[in-house]
Amino acid sequence: YSTSSRVVRFVKAKSVGLRLTGGNDVGIFVSSVQEGSLADSQGVREGDQILQVNDTSFQNLTREEAVEYLMALPPGEEVTLWIQSKQDIYRKMISSNVGDSFYIRTHFDFEKDTPSGLSFVRGDVFHVLDTMYRGRLGSWLAVRMGRDLQEQERGIIPNQSRAEQIASLESVLKATSGTNPSGARAEFWKLRGLRGAKKMLRKSREDLSALTKQGRYPPYERVVLKEASFKRPVVILGPIADIAVQKLSRELPELFEIAPSVPRDGASSKVIKLDSVRQIAEKNKHALLDITPSAVERLNYVQYYPVVVFCQPESRQGIKAMRQWLAPDSRKSSRRLYAQANKMKKNCSHLFTATISLSGGGNAWYEQIQDIIRTQQNQPVWTTADQADVAPEDSLEVLNPPSRVASGYLTCDSHANSDYDDTDGETGAFTDGEAEDAYDQPGLARSSEP
């Protein structure tokens, strides 16, 4: 607090009689004082920074949060303001047009409803620049962040409370539609945003998927850019995933290790223990995981942030030729692999951290996968903001969930990466209508099952 800081007290009338500017990045400032208001008579002036109101610090609030806080105070009650005159910073702030500044990751899909709006899909990251677009509550001014971490187009997105409404409506619609390709996702992200989710995790049972049954939908997650202090797990998706994983672990054993899958209790399906992923990371290697897309979401949730490379096939024939060349003994159906890849692309692309094309000849795909893993390992990751100030050397410990959670399981991919008994010549019933095929499909499991 500067020497000019002071405390003012007055009874809130119908309103406080102030307009605010600034935001979490620069502080909350008074931009106007209503003439004749009690705030005016108590000496609140334009350019004053509000440090605290009653018991609430204003030092890190967004402009919207500050406004909502003051609006929610009941009229007729005394308000105590800690303020300081900061004319120089106030002028500088106005001339440089800065205010709020923070990053969010979205956890619902949004179709823009105004020309200046931005559409987005879950997983998109935005830099929020103003939580009160045009001075009113309702929309945030934001810039989309590209995969290359460069800022892209600027526009408006719903504010927190509108986002909550839209997201919960979306999840209700999806839950009741019956043709929901992302029920598991929606459920998962519902849980994902819960502030208390970690507590729930601690109370957790063995199967993380049990957690996805509860919780509230989190529309926006605060994130910061942070480098991974451990070797990120790697998930390869697409029609040659099995081959890629074998080749990486065989040819580069000092860098890659396949995470072992174990039978799930009382079931023929298989799971990967989260703890074995952690153990591989502790050996300073990338764990190679054969898991479902929804298990990828769980990995993100527990902040392992896997590198997820999708191998995009050119055609069914291309897959067939490639697999005959790379794994002549495999009996996987190229028709099925091709259909699965298409569904995965349609339903899960928000989970991919990179996509490679399989149309190139030779071993280009293999080189590309290695390049991507190397590059992404060295790039920072959008990480939950809550744990941003953890010391790097502690990160693995903290990034990893507590021990009870570490015994959690990841569902093995019963669908994308496993070997099917059916062969290319077969013409079994296989429809494209089942969008959830690309996600966990307990009904369709590994080749060991009937």
Partner: peptide, 12 residues
């Protein structure tokens, strides 16, 4: 339009 001078902002 950013927060700017806050003169377009709602009264609270």
């Amino acid at each position: 339009s950013k927060s700017g001078d806050g003169k377009n902002s709602v009264w609270i």
